[in-house]
């Protein structure tokens, strides 16, 4: 009973904040509502005993992706008014797409169990009574060590490519030369000027 109440509270906040993401006028507000959405869906996942996914959602999406989003929103100062133009014009198409999606989802959810010809084997966390964080940890560096290492190389490539494409020396840009700053001597920066003292009349 208590679980049901908690579920409905989180689900209600989730739906409310998700609606606010697309209706808020201020993009910063929209981004913050997205954070709230992530938190609530993480809570729902925790209730579904998928605590690893819940924590990962908060750590990755809230901690990293959304912070980056906020940076971009604040730094670029996008004027959202032109983006909202033509809302009424695209509304019929949007409604059509929305209706099709709802209908398809209703068909999938309402259909009898899809016949895949095989029953899936292997139990989840509920069967063994172990937490799924522990289960993931026990296979990530053993059974899946090879894909895991390749994934790390994929990230390395992403880092190299991003730096290669953005870092370039352009003439005229101002940047610090630390070694020059350290090696500087008094004579380079300080110039003694003799000024004749003013005479009082």
């Amino acid at each position: 009973m208590i679980e049901l109440i908690i579920f409905y509270v989180f689900a209600a906040v989730l739906l409310f904040s998700a609606t606010m993401v697309i209706t808020a006028r201020n993009p910063v507000h929209a981004a913050l509502f997205l954070v709230l959405t992530f938190f609530n869906s993480a809570a729902l996942w925790l209730m579904a005993e998928a605590e690893f996914l819940g924590i990962a959602l908060v750590l990755v999406y809230v901690g990293a992706v959304m912070v980056l989003f906020l940076f971009v929103v604040m730094m670029l100062d996008i004027n959202v008014a032109p983006l909202r133009e033509g809302f009424a014009r695209y509304l019929p198409l949007g409604i059509l797409v929305g209706v099709v999606m709802v209908a398809e989802m209703a068909l999938v959810v309402g259909a009898e169990q899809l016949d895949v010809g095989l029953t899936l084997t292997g139990g989840g966390a509920a069967d063994t009574g172990e937490s799924n964080t522990r289960l993931i940890g026990s296979v990530l560096y053993t059974v899946y060590v090879y894909p895991f290492e390749i994934a790390s190389l994929v990230l390395l490539v992403a880092i190299i490519a991003a730096i290669m494409l953005t870092l370039r020396r352009r003439p005229g840009t101002k940047h610090q030369d630390i070694s020059q700053q350290v090696r500087v001597r008094k004579a380079d920066r300080l110039r003694m000027v003799d000024l004749p003292s003013e005479r009082r009349e």
Binding site: Y144, Y146, P147, I150, A151, L153, V154, V157, A158, I160, A161, M164, L165, R168
Partner: peptide
């Protein structure tokens, strides 16, 4: 394994995207 195959493919593809943009 399908996972390794996909990761290898992505490793290759990411390098290719970056190389195509090599001349900035």
């Amino acid at each position: 394994s399908m996972l390794t195959m996909y990761l290898g493919l992505e490793l290759l593809s990411l390098c290719q995207y970056a190389l195509v943009a090599f001349n900035r």
